[in-house]
């Protein structure tokens, strides 16, 4: 069964998701990858407000290609998540409930998913054209100077994802690797 879920994510829904489940995600999500994470963490360190309220939200690790005129976004698939592993905890502490990326994550991240009742979604890598189909709106809301790494607010409809790590810390890859 493919479950449909939407943002902002609520804890009573999150706890029903299990590693390996296929889901279709709809609603507003935010993009941030390496450089934007560095800036977000700096703002947190300085005690300043973030460009968006992280509470209940989902961050998509992506650096899209530029949109052609008249199009919402270019190719937009996930980047590899482990590079954000050490920059995730401060965001979870602010209420972040989901991250979307590809690949393995650290043991720490599995523990945090359990502790903070959050999930790690896996999007399929290398199919950025197909994934861009589910993105209906895109707006840069912060760090425009970072180009592809700027923070974008996206509206997605039925984005196809797998649950990579569920809110109990179970990992899809532990079954196969």
């Amino acid at each position: 069964m493919i479950r449909k879920i939407s943002t902002p994510l609520k804890e009573e829904e999150i706890v029903l998701l299990e590693a390996g489940d296929e889901v279709l995600l709809s609603g507003y999500i935010y993009t941030a990858r390496d450089a934007a994470h560095k800036k977000l963490l700096q703002l947190i360190d300085e005690g300043k407000d973030l460009p968006f309220d992280v509470n209940g939200q989902v961050i998509f690790y992506v650096g899209p290609t530029p949109n052609k005129p008249g199009e919402v976004i270019g190719s937009a698939g996930p980047t590899t998540s482990y590079r954000m592993d050490e920059m995730t905890l401060p965001l979870l502490k602010l209420g972040l409930k989901g991250t979307i990326g590809k690949g393995k994550r650290s043991e720490d991240i599995k523990n945090y998913m359990n502790e903070y009742k959050a999930v790690y979604f896996i999007a399929i890598g290398g199919i950025g054209a197909l994934i861009s189909n589910s993105i209906k709106e895109s707006e840069i809301i912060a760090f425009e100077e970072l180009g592809t790494e700027a923070i974008r607010k996206l509206y997605v409809e039925d984005m196809p994802l797998y649950i990579g790590i569920d809110s109990y810390g179970n990992d899809i890859y532990s079954e196969v690797l």
Partner: peptide
């Protein structure tokens, strides 16, 4: 089954990319 599904998505992606000239992957 999951593997088959993912490979099918990869095929769907290259067909779409070619038809609509959207880069195959965002990492160009």
């Amino acid at each position: 089954a999951r593997g088959k599904n993912i490979l099918s998505m990869i095929k769907e992606n290259y067909l779409l990319s070619e038809a609509k000239r959207i880069p195959l992957c965002q990492d160009t």
